[in-house]
């Protein structure tokens, strides 16, 4: 099967230029990436683009883009993503978020319930679960962080470029600084989110890797308790990033749900 073609466009979202990757046709699906996956058209995007019009924006401050002056909290991105939907002329979309993108998606769905028709959170951060704390990745070297994220380390290679040149290293450092600004304190969560999740009206699927060592399954269970009607599915033997590590199983669970 030939790869699904994608196009790339830079949109002005208020005063912020945003690179967006588009692929496929059909109902719009806003795909919010996690760290390390900004601006990369992955196999999972191709698969989803067979069923939906996939809209994959680069989050400002990620993927080597400069961090805008207005960006301090995940909540700032909620307004940004609502504005992005507006710039795309979309009153509503299916929204899927991975890792820190899952946190953004959850906050968007809680703040603007009417803008999100269906919600998928994958290994989402955003909550504090004292029994299953999110490890302090800022204190760890990359070689110690990757095994926290991937059960099958070889799949992480999909996210890495052919050569680790200076540009790549600088983009990584800049993204790490954005992550720190958003998630240093409170550590990868917003204490306000817990209560607000009751506002989510979208049917919600929570997808977690059983071996997620960054946001352990306990985080998925908490989201399941807090979002009305949400359903948690756990992929056995999978790490923090099922769309990369187990693309087939991931799509098998997500596509029927998103089609509703």
């Amino acid at each position: 099967m030939s790869p699904t073609p994608f196009t790339e466009e830079t949109l002005g979202v208020r005063d912020t230029p945003v690179r967006v990757l588009f692929g496929g046709k059909g109902e719009p699906l806003l795909f919010l990436h996690g760290a390390g996956a900004a601006g990369v058209w992955l196999p999972v995007h191709e698969r989803l683009a067979e069923h939906f019009r996939v809209i994959a924006p680069l989050c400002p401050g990620f993927g080597g883009t400069p961090r805008p002056e207005w960006l301090d909290r995940t909540t700032d991105l909620t307004f940004h993503h609502a504005d992005l939907l507006g710039a795309l002329g979309l009153a509503q979309a299916r929204v899927l978020g991975v890792s820190i993108g899952g946190w953004m998606a959850a906050d968007l769905a809680a703040t603007y319930p009417d803008r999100v028709s269906r919600l998928v959170l994958v290994g989402a951060s955003g909550l504090s679960i004292p029994e299953a704390p999110i490890p302090d990745i800022f204190a760890l070297p990359m070689e110690a962080v990757l095994p926290l994220l991937f059960e099958d380390l070889s799949t992480a290679l999909a996210l890495l470029p052919g050569s680790m040149d200076q540009d790549f290293v600088e983009a990584q450092l800049r993204e790490r600084a954005t992550m720190a600004h958003l998630a240093w304190n409170p550590h990868f969560h917003d204490p306000k989110l817990r209560r607000r999740l009751a506002r989510v009206t979208a049917p919600t699927l929570l997808l977690w890797g059983e071996k997620d060592r960054f946001t352990p399954v306990a985080h998925g269970k908490a989201y399941e308790r807090l979002i009305p009607g949400a359903r948690l599915e756990v992929i056995p033997g999978c790490g923090h990033v099922p769309p990369v590590e187990r693309t087939d199983e991931f799509c098998a669970a997500v596509v029927p749900f998103l089609k509703g």
Partner: peptide, 8 residues
């Protein structure tokens, strides 16, 4: 090194 030079 991570302690000496945190992100940003």
């Amino acid at each position: 090194l991570e302690f000496l030079m945190p992100p940003g």
